[in-house]
Amino acid sequence: MNALAEVYARIERGEYPPEDGRVRIVEPSSDRDTVVASFTAHFVVAAKVDESWARSYLPAGDFSAPVGPAFLSALEQRLGKRAGCLDHALLATGLPDDPDLELTRVTSSNHGRVERSLRHRDEVRTYLTEGGVLTVGRGLAGRWEAAFEVEPAHRGRGLGRRLIRAARHLVPDGAGIWCQVTPGNAASLRAVLAAGFRPVGSEVIFEPR
């Protein structure tokens, strides 16, 4: 198993990285899976870079350096990629039975949320309900990931929480399912937490320019 996939698999089993201040430099599981992942006093940089080069930007004991602008900008230049935003990484487990929300699965959609999911995930399934869209697919290192969006006219009614909770019924019972939320998106973060997801760390994913 790839080192990055092993990190996520262990977390899904409740085995969190040690709080040792370590920064691990590992090979990405694919070119699409270039990421800087941060956990409590532990970091994983999955990128095709020389370790000695990376560590020149990462002073020992500086827990802000792996997600700081100097290192992220240097990675952008080194890899010819663009750093995405810093996202919360939240985890829940799959639930049995069907969702309590009426969803229609569609085979195509030009919704921006769907197009983003298709860039970052495999085996993407798209579901629509009145006022919202939900996607479930295989993302970083093959893990299950979900994303959702609620139309402005339907916000403030709990639909976001119901959408993201529905995602837990759309993966195998007991499987880990992840959701990424930009810290400033407080409404989405509240919905994801209310749906039973728990914060695990943060991630900066690198994309083609």
Rank of each mutant, 00 (worst) to 15 (best):
F63N: 08
G94E: 02
H154K: 02
E130Q: 03
R168C: 13
R155Q: 12
S108N: 12
G68V: 07
E130R: 08
T40L: 11
D50I: 04
S73C: 04
Y57E: 02
F148Y: 07
V44A: 09
G61K: 10
G80E: 10
F39W: 13
A41Y: 09
E130G: 02
T104I: 14
P66H: 00
H169P: 04
D122G: 13
S56E: 14
L58M: 13
P152H: 04
P69S: 11
D62P: 11
L86R: 13
A92V: 05
G139N: 07
V106Q: 05
E123S: 14
A65W: 06
P152C: 01
S52T: 13
L86H: 09
R165W: 03
L163C: 10
N110L: 10
L159S: 01
L95N: 00
L95G: 00
W53K: 03
R138T: 15
C85H: 09
R105P: 00
L159I: 10
G84Q: 03
T40Y: 12
L103D: 12
R155K: 10
K81H: 03
G137K: 15
R161V: 12
K81Q: 05
D50T: 07
T126K: 05
E151L: 06
F148W: 06
V136N: 06
A147K: 05
T135I: 01
